[in-house]
């Protein structure tokens, strides 16, 4: 697997040499491989927002380097538009960035900035709308008249229309109701399956556990834990001390193991835990 993002020893200090000086990132290194679905977990102040800004060259990387597809973002000769074409960044509450009169125009903002021709822009807008599940009929609607969930989809489509090969999302499901959350996460799963490398920043262990291949846990600007979800979830106590939680089923798995059940260590999804319980009681593995 080829790595598409490579962060090496990245440190970021806010307002250096002032009374407000704060280390947002402290010697962070991480790798994202092509086609992966990566989860970055950490709460407010853990440095995750600063980290994603670095991946899009919105911050300068001093001490440390960030490579996107082999290009050093700190290099003076690196063209920022090239980076932003490659890495799509969806901020928290992205619907607050909408500004155009129509959905179509808003989604076209990115491709237009890339100076694509009109035919290509039209094509990309249509494709992006389809990918995020927005009906064609909404093309001429004002984005401000849509529901909260639809607005967010428009904003995501606006980033997808730049055809990034890597998509980074900061808390894409924040503030949505449970059904909206599920819909949004399924949408991202769909985008990932269409061949885009996805990095999702989230508070929710349940969400990253369900969708991500690999996790990085960020605390106080440092990578505290990393690995496959199952490996990370084995550190329940550590996570809790960072104010993070473990998915309910991972907790149950641990509790059952303590009671002598044979639940494999990599079982944290409901289906896996259910299967282990059924097997234990001799009911076979026929749970859905």
């Amino acid at each position: 697997m080829a790595s598409v993002i490579e962060v090496r020893h990245l440190t970021h200090v806010y307002m250096p040499n002032s009374p407000f000086e704060a280390k947002a990132l402290d010697d962070v290194s991480l790798t994202v491989n092509e086609g992966e679905f990566i989860g970055i977990i950490g709460h407010t102040g853990s440095g995750k927002s600063t980290l994603v800004s670095h991946l899009n060259a919105l911050e300068k990387s001093e001490p440390g380097t960030v490579f996107v597809k082999g290009t050093d973002l700190g290099d003076k000769d690196t063209k920022l538009t090239d980076v932003r074409r490659e890495v799509g960044l969806v901020f928290q509450y992205p619907e607050y960035q909408l500004f155009e009169e129509t959905v179509e125009k808003d989604i076209a903002f990115g491709p237009t900035n890339l100076k694509l021709d009109e035919k290509e822009i039209k094509h990309r807008v249509r494709a992006a709308m389809e990918l995020v599940g927005l009906d064609e009929s909404l093309r001429d609607a004002s984005p401000f008249n849509l529901s909260g969930g639809q607005k967010r989809r428009v904003a995501i489509a606006g980033v997808l229309a730049m055809n990034p090969s890597i998509l980074i999302l900061d808390e894409p499901a924040a503030g949505l109701d449970p059904a909206g959350r599920r819909g949004m996460l399924e949408l991202i799963k769909g985008i990932h399956q269409s061949g885009v490398t996805v990095v999702m920043v989230s508070h929710s262990m349940d969400d990253v556990g369900k969708y991500c291949d690999r996790l990085y846990v960020l605390a106080h600007g440092k990578i505290a834990l990393s690995g496959m979800p199952a490996e990370v979830f084995l550190h329940g106590a550590e996570l809790q001390s960072m104010g993070l939680d473990v998915p309910e089923c991972a907790k149950l798995a641990a509790a059952l193991r303590a009671r002598g059940f044979d639940v494999p260590e990599d079982a944290y999804r409901r289906a896996d835990v259910a299967a282990a319980i059924l097997k234990h009681f001799g009911k076979g593995g026929d749970a859905q």
Binding site: D177, G180, E248, R270, A274, A287, Q288
Partner: peptide, 19 residues
């Protein structure tokens, strides 16, 4: 459009499988 506690989903699944 809401969610239910994970354990309740699990017990529904287990019941579905005959437990």
């Amino acid at each position: 459009g809401l969610d239910v506690p994970e354990m309740m989903k699990l017990s529904r699944d287990l019941r579905g499988a005959g437990l």
